[in-house]
Structure formats: C-alpha cells, structure tokens
Computed example of a mutant assay.
Amino acid sequence: MAARALSFGTVAAAYERFRPGYPHRLFDAVAAYARRPIGTALEIGAGTGKATRLFAGRGVAVTTTEPDAAMLEELRRHVPTTVTTRQAAFEDLGDAGRHDLVYAAAALHWTQPEGRWSRMAALLESGGVFASFGGPVQLADPAVADAVRAAREPFLESDEIASPDGTPADQPMQWPGTELERSEFFTDVEQSVIERRLTMSAGDFVGYLSTVSAYIELPAADRAKVFDQVLQVLPEAVEISADVSVHLARRVADLP
C-alpha cells in the first residue's frame, strides 16, 4: 500500500489537469458543522492542492502535508502563497501544532491504521474538527460503464480501492465513519454526500483514469492498451457521477 500511495508523482501534471476540484458546498458543510470560525487547518496528503485552494480561498490558514515531492511541486504552482507546504507523510509529521481543522481529501485511506486517530486528535484543538472527503469519478450511464468494464477486464479486474476496514457498501455508515464511531478520541460523527454530475470528453475521462493508482501500477504496454480499448467504447462525451462523500467528527473536548 505504501508504494501505491507514492505512485502519483509520476502523473502529477495529469492529476492536476484531469481530476475534478471540490465544490464550495463542501466548505460550507464543514464550516456549518464546526459551529465556530476555522482559522487554521492542516491538510493530510494534499496532492496537487485541489482541496487546498477551496479552504485557503475562504480565508483559512492552511498547512499542507504531502509525502510525494513531485505532487508537492505541482501543488506549489497552483496554491496561494499564504499556504504553508511541508513534504511529509502523516505518520512522520511529529509536532505539527494544533489546528481548528484537520482534513484529508481522497487521501485518508493511504494512512496507516495503527495509531491513526490518536495521532489525528493530537493535531487538533480541543473540540476541533476532523474532515475526510472524496469519492470516485464514475460513469453515470450504466451501459457505458459496462462497456468500459469489459474493455478493462483483460488487463485489470477492478480499478477500485476496497473499504479499508471491510465495511460492505450497503451499510448505512461507511469508512472512515465506522472507525471514528469506535474511536475514544472523536465524537459527533456525521456522514453526508454532496451530489455532483459533470461532463467530460472521452479523452479527459481516460486522462482521469491515468491518475488512478490501479492503472498507474500496470506495465506501460498494458496501460497503453487498456486506454486504447476504453477510448474505442466511449462516446465523444460522457456524463460522470463525481459525488463527494463527507465524514465529519469532533475531537473529544477533555483529552489532554
């Protein structure tokens, strides 16, 4: 998992170009949950800064952390100069201060489970907020999705990442909410979904696939073949579902 988590630097420019950003409704949801001003935030696994720009643009003093040097270099090209950047994995942060908000945008599943929540709580002010959000970009038309799946299967059985704690997809509470509900360090766990529908060209959708770790790990020849096969079955433009799943929790106030 560690090697896969550090594979994105090879496609940093494509990641920035083809991955959707985050809607303003996301910030509004986090701010409403916080019920107090969010002055400082620490971002875990910031990638190229898709979420960084959302929070920094709303006046939050954001410190980003990202273990991959190439991703961090791409991020620095796109975020405001007010953003503090740091190359580090979540597990190697050490003393990073305490913040009103700690968040991870499509990155929490790359962190190690051992000590995850005690480490997260130590980064938050008393009563501070943790937020995790993200979600796959999926083809909205089932027939097109089936055609792409058939084109992909000779090279890759699945391009999805399974729930880190094995929670079935039909359960009401999904990961990481399941872990947060069991954690002694957090309370008031909430889960919500921000629905989004976007349109992409076929080429841009394949560009998005090129930033998905399952495809990055394929041998170069197989990767080229699967993308060619997928392009052949896609219409000129595709509608995609890019829903953002949001999990929010509050650090227990009486922790040391």
Score class of each variant (00 low, 15 high):
M1V: 07
A3C: 06
R4F: 02
A5E: 03
V11W: 05
A13Y: 12
E16F: 10
E16T: 04
R17H: 07
P20R: 11
H24K: 13
L26Y: 10
V30S: 09
A32G: 10
R35V: 12
R36W: 14
T40P: 07
T40R: 13
I44F: 05
A46S: 10
G47K: 14
G49C: 11
R53I: 11
A56N: 11
G57A: 08
G57F: 12
A61G: 07
A69D: 01
E73V: 12
E73W: 10
T81D: 14
V83G: 05
T84L: 02
R86Q: 09
F90A: 12
L93N: 00
L93I: 13
D95F: 15
L101V: 07
A107L: 09
H109A: 03
R116F: 08
W117Y: 13
A122N: 11
L123E: 02
L124I: 08
G127Y: 09
G127V: 13
V129T: 14
S132T: 03
D141R: 15
D141A: 12
V144T: 15
V144C: 02
V148N: 12
S158Y: 06
S158V: 14
S163V: 13
S163Q: 09
G166C: 10
P168K: 11
W175A: 01
G177H: 12
T178D: 04
D188A: 06
V189L: 12
V189Q: 10
V193Y: 10
V193M: 04
E195S: 01
R196W: 00
R196Q: 11
L198N: 02
M200E: 05
V206K: 00
G207L: 06
G207F: 03
G207S: 04
Y208W: 01
S210E: 08
S210H: 02
S213Q: 03
S213K: 02
I216R: 14
F227G: 01
F227N: 04
D228G: 15
Q229I: 05
V230D: 00
Q232N: 10
V233Q: 11
L234M: 15
A237L: 14
V238W: 08
I240W: 01
S241W: 06
A242M: 07
D243R: 15
V244P: 05
R250Q: 11
R251K: 15
